[in-house]
Design a protein around this nucleic acid. Structure first.
Length: 570
RNA sequence: GCCUGCAUAGUUAAAUGGAUAUAAUAACCCCCUCCUAAGGGGUAGUUAUGGGUUCGAUUCCCGUUGCGGGUGCCA
Protein backbone atom coordinates (compact mmCIF):
# COMPACT_ATOMS: atom_id res chain seq x y z
CA UNK A 1 0.00 0.00 0.00
CA UNK A 2 2.91 2.33 0.66
CA UNK A 3 4.01 2.10 -2.95
CA UNK A 4 0.65 2.82 -4.47
CA UNK A 5 0.09 5.69 -2.08
CA UNK A 6 3.36 7.19 -3.18
CA UNK A 7 2.61 6.73 -6.82
CA UNK A 8 -0.92 8.11 -6.65
CA UNK A 9 0.40 11.07 -4.71
CA UNK A 10 2.89 11.73 -7.50
CA UNK A 11 0.17 11.67 -10.12
CA UNK A 12 -1.98 14.02 -8.11
CA UNK A 13 0.99 16.32 -7.74
CA UNK A 14 1.50 16.36 -11.49
CA UNK A 15 -2.12 17.16 -12.10
CA UNK A 16 -2.13 19.92 -9.55
CA UNK A 17 0.91 21.44 -11.17
CA UNK A 18 -0.71 21.17 -14.59
CA UNK A 19 -4.14 22.45 -13.70
CA UNK A 20 -3.43 24.99 -11.01
CA UNK A 21 -0.52 27.09 -12.24
CA UNK A 22 1.51 28.60 -9.50
CA UNK A 23 0.27 26.19 -6.86
CA UNK A 24 2.86 24.25 -4.94
CA UNK A 25 2.40 20.67 -3.96
CA UNK A 26 4.83 17.93 -3.17
CA UNK A 27 4.23 14.25 -3.43
CA UNK A 28 5.41 13.43 0.07
CA UNK A 29 2.87 15.74 1.65
CA UNK A 30 0.11 14.43 -0.57
CA UNK A 31 1.03 10.85 0.22
CA UNK A 32 0.65 11.61 3.91
CA UNK A 33 -2.74 13.18 3.20
CA UNK A 34 -4.05 10.02 1.58
CA UNK A 35 -6.17 8.08 4.00
CA UNK A 36 -8.21 4.93 4.20
CA UNK A 37 -11.94 5.51 3.86
CA UNK A 38 -14.06 4.19 6.71
CA UNK A 39 -16.02 1.94 4.39
CA UNK A 40 -15.11 -0.04 1.29
CA UNK A 41 -18.01 1.57 -0.56
CA UNK A 42 -16.07 4.82 -0.40
CA UNK A 43 -13.06 3.38 -2.14
CA UNK A 44 -9.70 2.08 -1.03
CA UNK A 45 -7.77 5.31 -0.73
CA UNK A 46 -9.09 8.82 -0.36
CA UNK A 47 -7.79 12.33 -0.58
CA UNK A 48 -9.77 14.90 1.39
CA UNK A 49 -9.45 18.04 -0.69
CA UNK A 50 -10.41 20.55 1.99
CA UNK A 51 -6.86 21.49 2.87
CA UNK A 52 -5.97 22.03 -0.76
CA UNK A 53 -8.84 24.41 -1.06
CA UNK A 54 -6.92 27.33 0.41
CA UNK A 55 -3.78 27.09 -1.69
CA UNK A 56 -5.59 26.18 -4.89
CA UNK A 57 -8.32 28.79 -4.44
CA UNK A 58 -11.12 26.47 -5.48
CA UNK A 59 -13.77 24.68 -3.51
CA UNK A 60 -12.89 21.15 -2.34
CA UNK A 61 -15.59 19.74 -4.59
CA UNK A 62 -14.16 21.55 -7.63
CA UNK A 63 -10.67 20.33 -6.85
CA UNK A 64 -11.79 16.75 -6.34
CA UNK A 65 -13.79 17.01 -9.54
CA UNK A 66 -10.87 18.30 -11.58
CA UNK A 67 -8.54 15.63 -10.21
CA UNK A 68 -11.09 12.84 -10.60
CA UNK A 69 -11.24 13.60 -14.31
CA UNK A 70 -7.54 13.67 -14.84
CA UNK A 71 -5.71 11.33 -12.46
CA UNK A 72 -5.20 8.07 -14.30
CA UNK A 73 -3.50 4.95 -13.10
CA UNK A 74 -3.74 1.44 -14.47
CA UNK A 75 -4.04 0.07 -10.92
CA UNK A 76 -7.03 2.23 -10.14
CA UNK A 77 -10.32 1.08 -11.59
CA UNK A 78 -12.15 4.31 -10.88
CA UNK A 79 -11.86 7.64 -9.18
CA UNK A 80 -14.82 9.43 -7.69
CA UNK A 81 -15.48 12.84 -6.33
CA UNK A 82 -17.73 12.61 -3.29
CA UNK A 83 -18.36 15.78 -1.30
CA UNK A 84 -14.82 17.01 -1.60
CA UNK A 85 -13.24 13.63 -1.14
CA UNK A 86 -11.36 12.09 -4.02
CA UNK A 87 -11.92 8.36 -3.72
CA UNK A 88 -9.74 5.79 -5.46
CA UNK A 89 -10.86 2.24 -6.12
CA UNK A 90 -8.06 -0.25 -6.68
CA UNK A 91 -8.64 -2.87 -9.30
CA UNK A 92 -8.64 -6.60 -8.69
CA UNK A 93 -5.68 -7.15 -10.91
CA UNK A 94 -3.56 -5.01 -8.63
CA UNK A 95 -4.96 -6.50 -5.41
CA UNK A 96 -4.34 -10.04 -6.55
CA UNK A 97 -1.28 -9.94 -8.76
CA UNK A 98 0.69 -7.30 -6.94
CA UNK A 99 -0.40 -7.04 -3.33
CA UNK A 100 -1.34 -10.64 -2.60
CA UNK A 101 1.47 -12.14 -4.62
CA UNK A 102 3.90 -9.66 -3.09
CA UNK A 103 3.07 -10.79 0.43
CA UNK A 104 3.55 -14.46 -0.31
CA UNK A 105 6.76 -13.81 -2.19
CA UNK A 106 8.24 -11.70 0.60
CA UNK A 107 7.40 -14.41 3.13
CA UNK A 108 8.91 -13.90 6.54
CA UNK A 109 10.48 -10.66 5.35
CA UNK A 110 7.10 -9.18 4.54
CA UNK A 111 6.62 -5.98 6.49
CA UNK A 112 10.31 -5.56 7.23
CA UNK A 113 12.35 -2.52 6.28
CA UNK A 114 15.98 -1.75 5.77
CA UNK A 115 16.30 1.84 6.93
CA UNK A 116 17.88 0.82 10.22
CA UNK A 117 20.70 -1.10 8.58
CA UNK A 118 24.12 -0.22 9.86
CA UNK A 119 22.70 1.38 12.97
CA UNK A 120 22.60 0.09 16.50
CA UNK A 121 19.90 0.42 19.13
CA UNK A 122 20.50 -0.39 22.75
CA UNK A 123 17.42 -1.27 24.76
CA UNK A 124 17.33 -1.28 28.53
CA UNK A 125 14.32 -3.21 29.82
CA UNK A 126 12.92 -5.68 32.31
CA UNK A 127 15.68 -5.02 34.88
CA UNK A 128 14.27 -6.72 37.96
CA UNK A 129 15.82 -6.29 41.37
CA UNK A 130 17.76 -9.30 42.54
CA UNK A 131 16.27 -11.14 45.51
CA UNK A 132 13.00 -9.30 45.08
CA UNK A 133 9.78 -10.68 43.65
CA UNK A 134 9.47 -10.65 39.87
CA UNK A 135 5.87 -9.61 39.64
CA UNK A 136 3.18 -8.25 37.42
CA UNK A 137 4.64 -4.75 37.71
CA UNK A 138 7.60 -5.96 35.64
CA UNK A 139 5.42 -7.29 32.86
CA UNK A 140 5.24 -3.91 31.09
CA UNK A 141 8.93 -3.18 30.80
CA UNK A 142 9.65 -6.79 29.90
CA UNK A 143 7.19 -7.27 27.07
CA UNK A 144 7.22 -3.71 25.74
CA UNK A 145 11.01 -3.74 25.77
CA UNK A 146 11.18 -7.03 23.98
CA UNK A 147 8.57 -5.99 21.42
CA UNK A 148 10.50 -2.78 20.71
CA UNK A 149 13.64 -4.82 20.23
CA UNK A 150 11.92 -7.10 17.72
CA UNK A 151 10.39 -4.12 15.94
CA UNK A 152 13.71 -2.38 15.60
CA UNK A 153 15.35 -5.54 14.32
CA UNK A 154 12.53 -5.86 11.81
CA UNK A 155 13.34 -2.47 10.34
CA UNK A 156 17.01 -3.29 10.10
CA UNK A 157 18.66 -2.10 13.28
CA UNK A 158 21.18 -4.13 15.16
CA UNK A 159 19.75 -4.39 18.66
CA UNK A 160 21.35 -4.95 22.01
CA UNK A 161 18.99 -5.98 24.79
CA UNK A 162 20.28 -5.09 28.22
CA UNK A 163 18.88 -6.37 31.46
CA UNK A 164 20.06 -3.72 33.88
CA UNK A 165 19.70 -5.88 36.96
CA UNK A 166 19.17 -4.22 40.30
CA UNK A 167 22.11 -6.05 41.77
CA UNK A 168 23.69 -3.46 44.04
CA UNK A 169 22.80 -1.35 47.04
CA UNK A 170 22.18 -1.57 50.76
CA UNK A 171 19.53 -4.23 50.28
CA UNK A 172 22.40 -6.65 49.78
CA UNK A 173 23.71 -5.78 53.22
CA UNK A 174 20.27 -6.68 54.51
CA UNK A 175 20.22 -9.91 52.55
CA UNK A 176 23.62 -10.91 53.87
CA UNK A 177 22.61 -10.24 57.47
CA UNK A 178 19.31 -12.05 57.02
CA UNK A 179 20.88 -15.06 55.39
CA UNK A 180 23.59 -15.39 58.03
CA UNK A 181 21.02 -15.18 60.81
CA UNK A 182 18.17 -17.28 59.47
CA UNK A 183 19.10 -18.68 56.10
CA UNK A 184 19.79 -22.31 55.22
CA UNK A 185 21.70 -23.02 52.08
CA UNK A 186 19.66 -26.04 51.05
CA UNK A 187 16.41 -24.17 51.54
CA UNK A 188 17.51 -21.34 49.31
CA UNK A 189 18.76 -23.79 46.71
CA UNK A 190 15.40 -25.50 46.75
CA UNK A 191 13.19 -22.47 47.15
CA UNK A 192 15.00 -20.02 44.90
CA UNK A 193 14.06 -16.37 44.83
CA UNK A 194 10.95 -16.97 46.91
CA UNK A 195 13.15 -18.05 49.79
CA UNK A 196 15.39 -15.02 49.36
CA UNK A 197 12.37 -12.75 49.37
CA UNK A 198 11.16 -14.45 52.51
CA UNK A 199 14.47 -13.70 54.22
CA UNK A 200 14.32 -10.13 53.02
CA UNK A 201 10.80 -9.65 54.35
CA UNK A 202 11.78 -11.20 57.66
CA UNK A 203 14.67 -8.80 57.90
CA UNK A 204 12.32 -5.86 57.49
CA UNK A 205 9.94 -7.12 60.10
CA UNK A 206 12.67 -7.81 62.61
CA UNK A 207 14.39 -4.51 61.91
CA UNK A 208 11.29 -2.67 63.00
CA UNK A 209 11.68 -4.21 66.42
CA UNK A 210 15.43 -4.05 66.38
CA UNK A 211 16.81 -1.08 64.40
CA UNK A 212 20.37 -2.15 65.13
CA UNK A 213 19.93 -4.68 62.32
CA UNK A 214 19.99 -1.83 59.86
CA UNK A 215 23.39 -0.77 61.10
CA UNK A 216 24.61 -4.32 60.70
CA UNK A 217 23.27 -4.35 57.17
CA UNK A 218 25.03 -1.12 56.32
CA UNK A 219 28.25 -2.52 57.69
CA UNK A 220 27.90 -5.69 55.63
CA UNK A 221 27.21 -3.71 52.48
CA UNK A 222 30.25 -1.61 53.21
CA UNK A 223 32.32 -4.77 53.51
CA UNK A 224 30.86 -5.94 50.22
CA UNK A 225 31.90 -2.67 48.61
CA UNK A 226 35.39 -3.10 50.01
CA UNK A 227 35.63 -6.47 48.35
CA UNK A 228 35.15 -8.78 51.31
CA UNK A 229 35.46 -12.27 49.87
CA UNK A 230 32.76 -13.98 51.88
CA UNK A 231 30.25 -11.25 51.18
CA UNK A 232 31.06 -11.21 47.52
CA UNK A 233 30.51 -14.93 47.34
CA UNK A 234 27.12 -14.59 48.94
CA UNK A 235 26.19 -11.64 46.77
CA UNK A 236 27.09 -13.51 43.59
CA UNK A 237 25.12 -16.47 44.77
CA UNK A 238 22.02 -14.36 45.39
CA UNK A 239 22.26 -13.06 41.84
CA UNK A 240 22.72 -16.52 40.44
CA UNK A 241 19.73 -17.91 42.33
CA UNK A 242 17.57 -15.01 41.18
CA UNK A 243 18.65 -15.26 37.57
CA UNK A 244 17.77 -18.92 37.38
CA UNK A 245 14.22 -18.02 38.12
CA UNK A 246 14.02 -14.91 35.95
CA UNK A 247 15.32 -16.92 33.05
CA UNK A 248 12.51 -19.41 33.43
CA UNK A 249 10.08 -16.59 32.89
CA UNK A 250 12.11 -15.18 30.00
CA UNK A 251 12.11 -18.61 28.38
CA UNK A 252 8.35 -18.79 28.60
CA UNK A 253 8.22 -15.45 26.82
CA UNK A 254 10.93 -16.33 24.35
CA UNK A 255 13.08 -13.45 25.52
CA UNK A 256 16.85 -13.42 25.53
CA UNK A 257 19.14 -10.64 26.62
CA UNK A 258 22.47 -9.77 25.12
CA UNK A 259 23.76 -8.41 28.40
CA UNK A 260 22.96 -8.81 32.05
CA UNK A 261 25.30 -6.08 33.24
CA UNK A 262 23.54 -4.73 36.28
CA UNK A 263 23.99 -1.74 38.49
CA UNK A 264 27.02 -3.20 40.22
CA UNK A 265 28.95 -3.22 36.97
CA UNK A 266 28.94 0.57 36.74
CA UNK A 267 30.11 1.31 40.25
CA UNK A 268 33.71 1.93 39.26
CA UNK A 269 32.65 3.94 36.21
CA UNK A 270 30.90 6.66 38.14
CA UNK A 271 33.83 8.63 39.59
CA UNK A 272 35.06 9.61 36.14
CA UNK A 273 31.67 11.13 35.29
CA UNK A 274 31.45 12.90 38.64
CA UNK A 275 34.92 14.27 38.00
CA UNK A 276 33.90 15.46 34.56
CA UNK A 277 30.84 17.20 35.97
CA UNK A 278 33.03 18.91 38.51
CA UNK A 279 35.57 20.03 35.92
CA UNK A 280 32.82 21.44 33.77
CA UNK A 281 31.63 23.42 36.74
CA UNK A 282 28.21 21.84 36.59
CA UNK A 283 28.22 20.56 40.16
CA UNK A 284 26.91 22.73 42.92
CA UNK A 285 26.98 21.94 46.60
CA UNK A 286 23.59 22.45 48.09
CA UNK A 287 22.80 21.50 51.64
CA UNK A 288 25.84 19.26 51.52
CA UNK A 289 24.76 17.31 48.46
CA UNK A 290 26.20 17.73 44.96
CA UNK A 291 23.60 18.70 42.43
CA UNK A 292 23.25 19.88 38.86
CA UNK A 293 20.98 22.87 38.80
CA UNK A 294 18.27 22.51 36.14
CA UNK A 295 16.20 25.50 37.05
CA UNK A 296 16.53 27.15 33.68
CA UNK A 297 15.06 24.02 32.12
CA UNK A 298 12.13 24.16 34.47
CA UNK A 299 13.15 21.08 36.39
CA UNK A 300 14.16 20.41 39.97
CA UNK A 301 17.90 19.82 40.40
CA UNK A 302 19.45 16.48 39.55
CA UNK A 303 21.18 14.92 42.55
CA UNK A 304 24.56 13.46 41.78
CA UNK A 305 26.10 12.84 45.20
CA UNK A 306 24.50 12.52 48.61
CA UNK A 307 25.69 14.54 51.56
CA UNK A 308 27.89 11.61 52.56
CA UNK A 309 29.46 11.53 49.11
CA UNK A 310 27.80 8.35 47.94
CA UNK A 311 26.25 8.15 44.50
CA UNK A 312 22.67 8.16 43.38
CA UNK A 313 20.56 6.63 40.65
CA UNK A 314 21.20 9.38 38.05
CA UNK A 315 24.95 9.13 38.59
CA UNK A 316 24.88 5.45 37.74
CA UNK A 317 22.62 5.95 34.75
CA UNK A 318 24.95 8.56 33.32
CA UNK A 319 27.95 6.31 33.79
CA UNK A 320 26.06 3.41 32.23
CA UNK A 321 25.02 5.49 29.23
CA UNK A 322 28.61 6.61 28.62
CA UNK A 323 29.83 3.03 28.88
CA UNK A 324 27.17 1.79 26.50
CA UNK A 325 27.98 4.51 23.99
CA UNK A 326 31.64 3.55 24.12
CA UNK A 327 30.89 -0.16 23.94
CA UNK A 328 28.11 -0.35 21.39
CA UNK A 329 28.31 3.04 19.70
CA UNK A 330 24.53 3.18 19.67
CA UNK A 331 22.49 5.40 17.41
CA UNK A 332 19.65 5.20 19.85
CA UNK A 333 19.36 4.08 23.46
CA UNK A 334 15.90 3.17 24.64
CA UNK A 335 14.88 2.89 28.29
CA UNK A 336 11.61 1.19 29.03
CA UNK A 337 10.44 2.05 32.53
CA UNK A 338 7.34 3.04 34.40
CA UNK A 339 5.98 6.53 33.79
CA UNK A 340 6.74 7.31 37.42
CA UNK A 341 10.35 7.77 36.36
CA UNK A 342 9.70 10.38 33.68
CA UNK A 343 11.21 13.27 35.57
CA UNK A 344 14.26 11.26 36.53
CA UNK A 345 14.99 10.49 32.87
CA UNK A 346 14.37 14.05 31.72
CA UNK A 347 16.79 15.23 34.33
CA UNK A 348 19.71 12.98 33.62
CA UNK A 349 19.21 13.19 29.85
CA UNK A 350 19.56 16.93 30.26
CA UNK A 351 22.68 16.52 32.40
CA UNK A 352 24.23 14.30 29.71
CA UNK A 353 23.52 17.06 27.21
CA UNK A 354 25.04 19.69 29.48
CA UNK A 355 28.12 17.53 29.80
CA UNK A 356 28.61 18.04 26.09
CA UNK A 357 27.98 14.47 24.96
CA UNK A 358 26.78 14.99 21.44
CA UNK A 359 24.79 11.74 21.54
CA UNK A 360 22.44 13.04 24.23
CA UNK A 361 19.53 13.34 21.76
CA UNK A 362 19.86 9.60 21.09
CA UNK A 363 18.57 8.80 24.57
CA UNK A 364 14.91 7.87 24.56
CA UNK A 365 12.71 7.18 27.52
CA UNK A 366 9.71 4.98 26.76
CA UNK A 367 7.36 5.17 29.74
CA UNK A 368 4.30 3.07 30.41
CA UNK A 369 1.32 3.31 32.73
CA UNK A 370 1.05 1.57 36.04
CA UNK A 371 -0.63 -1.75 36.61
CA UNK A 372 -3.18 -2.35 39.29
CA UNK A 373 -4.85 -5.62 40.13
CA UNK A 374 -8.61 -5.75 40.23
CA UNK A 375 -8.64 -2.01 40.77
CA UNK A 376 -6.16 -1.96 43.62
CA UNK A 377 -2.59 -0.79 43.65
CA UNK A 378 0.21 -3.26 43.82
CA UNK A 379 1.61 -3.52 47.29
CA UNK A 380 3.94 -6.16 48.61
CA UNK A 381 3.01 -5.51 52.22
CA UNK A 382 -0.72 -6.05 51.74
CA UNK A 383 -0.07 -9.08 49.59
CA UNK A 384 -1.71 -7.50 46.55
CA UNK A 385 1.01 -8.80 44.31
CA UNK A 386 0.94 -11.41 41.63
CA UNK A 387 4.19 -13.02 40.66
CA UNK A 388 4.70 -13.40 36.96
CA UNK A 389 5.35 -17.09 37.27
CA UNK A 390 2.08 -17.56 39.16
CA UNK A 391 0.17 -15.48 36.66
CA UNK A 392 1.53 -17.51 33.76
CA UNK A 393 0.90 -20.77 35.60
CA UNK A 394 -2.71 -19.78 36.12
CA UNK A 395 -3.21 -18.94 32.46
CA UNK A 396 -1.45 -22.10 31.31
CA UNK A 397 -3.65 -24.23 33.57
CA UNK A 398 -6.77 -22.69 32.25
CA UNK A 399 -5.71 -23.15 28.64
CA UNK A 400 -4.87 -26.74 29.45
CA UNK A 401 -8.37 -27.32 30.71
CA UNK A 402 -9.98 -25.79 27.66
CA UNK A 403 -7.77 -27.82 25.36
CA UNK A 404 -8.52 -31.04 27.19
CA UNK A 405 -12.16 -30.34 26.55
CA UNK A 406 -12.01 -29.08 22.97
CA UNK A 407 -9.15 -30.95 21.46
CA UNK A 408 -8.32 -33.95 23.64
CA UNK A 409 -6.57 -35.84 20.85
CA UNK A 410 -3.95 -33.16 20.27
CA UNK A 411 -0.32 -34.11 20.76
CA UNK A 412 2.12 -31.88 22.59
CA UNK A 413 -0.62 -30.27 24.61
CA UNK A 414 1.62 -29.14 27.42
CA UNK A 415 3.82 -26.99 25.23
CA UNK A 416 0.90 -25.56 23.33
CA UNK A 417 -0.99 -24.75 26.51
CA UNK A 418 2.12 -22.96 27.69
CA UNK A 419 2.45 -20.90 24.56
CA UNK A 420 -1.25 -20.02 24.42
CA UNK A 421 -1.51 -19.28 28.14
CA UNK A 422 1.48 -16.98 28.12
CA UNK A 423 0.26 -15.48 24.87
CA UNK A 424 -3.08 -14.64 26.47
CA UNK A 425 -1.43 -12.60 29.21
CA UNK A 426 1.06 -10.90 26.95
CA UNK A 427 -1.55 -10.02 24.37
CA UNK A 428 -3.94 -8.69 26.99
CA UNK A 429 -1.18 -6.42 28.17
CA UNK A 430 0.25 -5.36 24.82
CA UNK A 431 -3.01 -4.56 23.12
CA UNK A 432 -3.39 -1.50 25.32
CA UNK A 433 -1.81 1.83 24.62
CA UNK A 434 1.30 1.70 26.74
CA UNK A 435 0.73 5.00 28.53
CA UNK A 436 -2.65 4.03 29.85
CA UNK A 437 -2.79 2.65 33.34
CA UNK A 438 -3.86 -0.96 33.21
CA UNK A 439 -6.26 -2.47 35.63
CA UNK A 440 -5.41 -6.13 35.51
CA UNK A 441 -8.70 -7.90 35.94
CA UNK A 442 -7.83 -11.55 36.21
CA UNK A 443 -11.16 -12.63 34.85
CA UNK A 444 -10.65 -10.59 31.68
CA UNK A 445 -7.01 -11.48 31.28
CA UNK A 446 -7.96 -15.13 31.46
CA UNK A 447 -10.94 -14.79 29.19
CA UNK A 448 -10.19 -16.48 25.92
CA UNK A 449 -12.98 -15.24 23.72
CA UNK A 450 -13.11 -12.13 21.61
CA UNK A 451 -10.08 -9.88 21.21
CA UNK A 452 -7.63 -12.12 22.96
CA UNK A 453 -4.32 -13.87 22.48
CA UNK A 454 -5.95 -17.30 22.14
CA UNK A 455 -8.27 -15.92 19.48
CA UNK A 456 -5.40 -14.79 17.28
CA UNK A 457 -3.33 -17.89 17.91
CA UNK A 458 -6.36 -19.97 17.11
CA UNK A 459 -6.74 -18.06 13.87
CA UNK A 460 -3.14 -18.75 12.97
CA UNK A 461 -3.62 -22.44 13.69
CA UNK A 462 -6.76 -22.43 11.59
CA UNK A 463 -4.83 -21.03 8.62
CA UNK A 464 -2.16 -23.69 9.10
CA UNK A 465 -4.76 -26.39 9.26
CA UNK A 466 -6.39 -25.26 6.03
CA UNK A 467 -3.06 -25.13 4.25
CA UNK A 468 -2.17 -28.61 5.40
CA UNK A 469 -5.33 -29.77 3.62
CA UNK A 470 -5.05 -27.70 0.45
CA UNK A 471 -1.30 -28.04 0.09
CA UNK A 472 0.98 -25.23 -1.05
CA UNK A 473 -0.75 -22.94 -3.53
CA UNK A 474 0.68 -22.72 -7.01
CA UNK A 475 2.24 -19.29 -7.17
CA UNK A 476 2.51 -19.37 -10.94
CA UNK A 477 -1.27 -19.36 -11.38
CA UNK A 478 -3.05 -16.08 -12.03
CA UNK A 479 -5.11 -14.80 -9.14
CA UNK A 480 -8.86 -14.88 -9.37
CA UNK A 481 -10.72 -12.81 -6.82
CA UNK A 482 -14.45 -13.36 -6.60
CA UNK A 483 -15.67 -12.31 -3.15
CA UNK A 484 -15.60 -9.02 -1.25
CA UNK A 485 -14.15 -10.77 1.81
CA UNK A 486 -11.12 -11.71 -0.26
CA UNK A 487 -10.47 -8.13 -1.24
CA UNK A 488 -11.04 -6.90 2.29
CA UNK A 489 -8.51 -9.41 3.58
CA UNK A 490 -5.89 -8.41 1.02
CA UNK A 491 -6.31 -4.75 1.86
CA UNK A 492 -5.91 -5.47 5.54
CA UNK A 493 -2.82 -7.58 4.93
CA UNK A 494 -1.36 -4.87 2.73
CA UNK A 495 -1.23 -2.43 5.60
CA UNK A 496 1.25 -4.40 7.66
CA UNK A 497 4.34 -2.46 6.58
CA UNK A 498 2.72 0.84 7.56
CA UNK A 499 1.75 -0.56 10.91
CA UNK A 500 5.32 -1.61 11.54
CA UNK A 501 6.51 1.90 10.77
CA UNK A 502 3.88 3.40 13.02
CA UNK A 503 4.76 1.09 15.89
CA UNK A 504 8.45 1.90 15.57
CA UNK A 505 7.84 5.62 15.23
CA UNK A 506 5.68 5.76 18.35
CA UNK A 507 7.47 3.06 20.34
CA UNK A 508 4.05 1.51 20.55
CA UNK A 509 3.72 -2.28 20.31
CA UNK A 510 -0.04 -2.03 20.77
CA UNK A 511 -0.26 -0.87 17.15
CA UNK A 512 0.86 -4.35 16.12
CA UNK A 513 -1.35 -6.13 18.63
CA UNK A 514 -4.43 -4.31 17.40
CA UNK A 515 -3.44 -4.85 13.81
CA UNK A 516 -3.20 -8.57 14.50
CA UNK A 517 -6.83 -8.42 15.61
CA UNK A 518 -7.79 -6.71 12.36
CA UNK A 519 -6.08 -9.43 10.37
CA UNK A 520 -7.65 -12.19 12.43
CA UNK A 521 -11.11 -10.68 12.01
CA UNK A 522 -10.67 -10.22 8.25
CA UNK A 523 -9.36 -13.73 7.85
CA UNK A 524 -12.13 -15.34 9.90
CA UNK A 525 -14.76 -13.47 7.94
CA UNK A 526 -13.16 -14.68 4.72
CA UNK A 527 -13.02 -18.19 6.10
CA UNK A 528 -16.71 -18.19 6.91
CA UNK A 529 -17.87 -16.69 3.67
CA UNK A 530 -15.60 -18.46 1.23
CA UNK A 531 -14.97 -22.12 0.66
CA UNK A 532 -11.26 -22.60 0.33
CA UNK A 533 -10.26 -26.20 -0.26
CA UNK A 534 -13.69 -27.14 -1.55
CA UNK A 535 -14.16 -24.29 -4.00
CA UNK A 536 -15.24 -25.72 -7.37
CA UNK A 537 -13.18 -23.47 -9.63
CA UNK A 538 -9.50 -24.48 -9.55
CA UNK A 539 -8.25 -20.92 -9.97
CA UNK A 540 -10.47 -19.70 -7.15
CA UNK A 541 -9.29 -22.54 -4.94
CA UNK A 542 -5.67 -21.71 -5.62
CA UNK A 543 -6.21 -18.00 -5.02
CA UNK A 544 -7.90 -18.68 -1.71
CA UNK A 545 -5.08 -20.93 -0.65
CA UNK A 546 -2.74 -18.06 -1.51
CA UNK A 547 -4.85 -15.78 0.64
CA UNK A 548 -4.68 -18.21 3.51
CA UNK A 549 -0.95 -18.45 3.11
CA UNK A 550 -0.64 -14.66 3.00
CA UNK A 551 -2.75 -14.30 6.15
CA UNK A 552 -0.65 -16.91 7.92
CA UNK A 553 2.50 -15.10 6.82
CA UNK A 554 1.35 -11.75 8.14
CA UNK A 555 0.05 -13.16 11.40
CA UNK A 556 3.25 -15.10 11.89
CA UNK A 557 5.47 -12.12 11.17
CA UNK A 558 3.42 -9.94 13.49
CA UNK A 559 3.40 -12.56 16.25
CA UNK A 560 7.16 -12.48 16.25
CA UNK A 561 7.03 -8.79 17.11
CA UNK A 562 4.82 -9.13 20.19
CA UNK A 563 5.98 -12.25 22.02
CA UNK A 564 3.35 -14.57 20.55
CA UNK A 565 4.40 -18.03 19.49
CA UNK A 566 3.16 -19.62 16.31
CA UNK A 567 1.33 -22.86 17.01
CA UNK A 568 0.21 -24.84 14.00
CA UNK A 569 -2.34 -26.73 16.01
CA UNK A 570 -4.31 -25.78 19.04
C1' G B 1 1.83 24.70 45.72
C1' C B 2 4.45 23.44 41.15
C1' C B 3 5.26 19.83 37.06
C1' U B 4 3.11 15.76 34.49
C1' G B 5 -0.19 11.64 32.55
C1' C B 6 -5.16 10.00 31.89
C1' A B 7 -10.83 10.83 31.08
C1' U B 8 -14.96 7.49 24.83
C1' A B 9 -21.11 2.28 25.21
C1' G B 10 -22.73 -1.11 31.86
C1' U B 11 -17.27 -2.77 31.57
C1' U B 12 -12.28 -3.06 28.93
C1' A B 13 -10.43 -0.62 24.98
C1' A B 14 -9.85 1.72 19.10
C1' A B 15 -9.93 6.01 16.02
C1' U B 16 -2.18 10.12 11.17
C1' G B 17 -7.56 17.17 12.43
C1' G B 18 -11.85 14.29 8.13
C1' A B 19 -17.10 10.99 5.69
C1' U B 20 -22.32 7.44 9.69
C1' A B 21 -17.01 7.51 16.49
C1' U B 22 -14.88 1.47 15.93
C1' A B 23 -14.22 -3.49 18.44
C1' A B 24 -14.53 -6.79 22.40
C1' U B 25 -17.19 -8.10 26.66
C1' A B 26 -21.69 -8.46 29.53
C1' A B 27 -27.56 -8.79 27.56
C1' C B 28 -30.95 -10.68 23.73
C1' C B 29 -31.38 -13.48 18.98
C1' C B 30 -29.55 -16.57 14.75
C1' C B 31 -25.50 -20.17 12.30
C1' C B 32 -21.81 -26.74 13.27
C1' U B 33 -24.83 -33.39 7.68
C1' C B 34 -19.67 -27.74 5.62
C1' C B 35 -11.86 -26.63 5.49
C1' U B 36 -10.79 -26.09 13.91
C1' A B 37 -17.74 -22.87 17.03
C1' A B 38 -11.31 -20.44 21.27
C1' G B 39 -15.40 -19.04 15.17
C1' G B 40 -19.23 -16.06 12.08
C1' G B 41 -23.76 -12.94 11.76
C1' G B 42 -27.71 -9.66 13.95
C1' U B 43 -30.35 -6.12 17.85
C1' A B 44 -29.44 -2.40 21.60
C1' G B 45 -25.99 1.01 23.86
C1' U B 46 -20.71 5.88 24.10
C1' U B 47 -16.67 11.22 23.21
C1' A B 48 -16.35 14.20 31.71
C1' U B 49 -17.44 19.73 31.53
C1' G B 50 -17.20 25.10 29.67
C1' G B 51 -14.84 28.02 26.09
C1' G B 52 -11.39 28.74 21.71
C1' U B 53 -8.81 27.64 16.81
C1' U B 54 -10.85 25.26 12.10
C1' C B 55 -14.69 24.32 6.29
C1' G B 56 -14.45 20.17 9.92
C1' A B 57 -12.28 18.53 16.88
C1' U B 58 -12.49 12.16 20.42
C1' U B 59 -7.87 14.34 18.41
C1' C B 60 -4.94 20.85 18.86
C1' C B 61 -5.12 25.31 22.68
C1' C B 62 -7.15 27.49 27.48
C1' G B 63 -10.27 26.92 31.94
C1' U B 64 -13.10 23.48 35.35
C1' U B 65 -13.95 18.71 37.60
C1' G B 66 -12.38 13.66 38.69
C1' C B 67 -8.43 9.87 39.07
C1' G B 68 -3.06 8.59 38.89
C1' G B 69 2.29 9.80 38.98
C1' G B 70 6.42 13.02 40.18
C1' U B 71 8.42 16.95 43.11
C1' G B 72 16.56 16.91 46.64
C1' C B 73 19.82 12.86 49.48
C1' C B 74 15.16 5.38 47.29
C1' A B 75 15.57 3.03 42.59
Amino acid sequence: MLKIKQSIAEKITEQIAAQFPGAEADAATLASMLEYPPDASMGDLALPCFKLSKTLRRSPVQIAGALAESVRDERVSRVENVNGYLNFYLNKEYLGETLLRGIVEAGDRYGSQTFGEGKTVVLDYSSPNVAKPFHIGHLGTTVIGHALKKLHEFVGYKCVGINYLGDWGTQFGKMIVAYRKWGVREEVEAGGVDKLVELYVRFHNEAEENPALNDEARAEFHKLEQGDEENIKLWKWFIEVSLVEYKKTYNLLGIEFDSYKGESFYTDKMPAQVQKLRELGLLKIDDGASIVDLEKYGMPPCLILKRDGSTLYPTRDIAAAVYRKETYDFDKAIYVTSAAQCLHFQQWFKVVEMMGYEWAPALVHVPYGTVSINGEKLATHTGNVILLKDLFALAIDKVGEIMAEKNPELKGRTDIAESVGVGAIVFYYLSNNRMKDINFVMEDALSFEGNTGPYVQYTYARACSILSKTGEPDKAQPMKLTAPEEEALIKTLARFPEKVLEAVRDYEPSVIARYILDVAAAFNRFYHECKIGSAEDAAVRNTRAMLTLAARTVLGNAFGLVCLKKEEKI
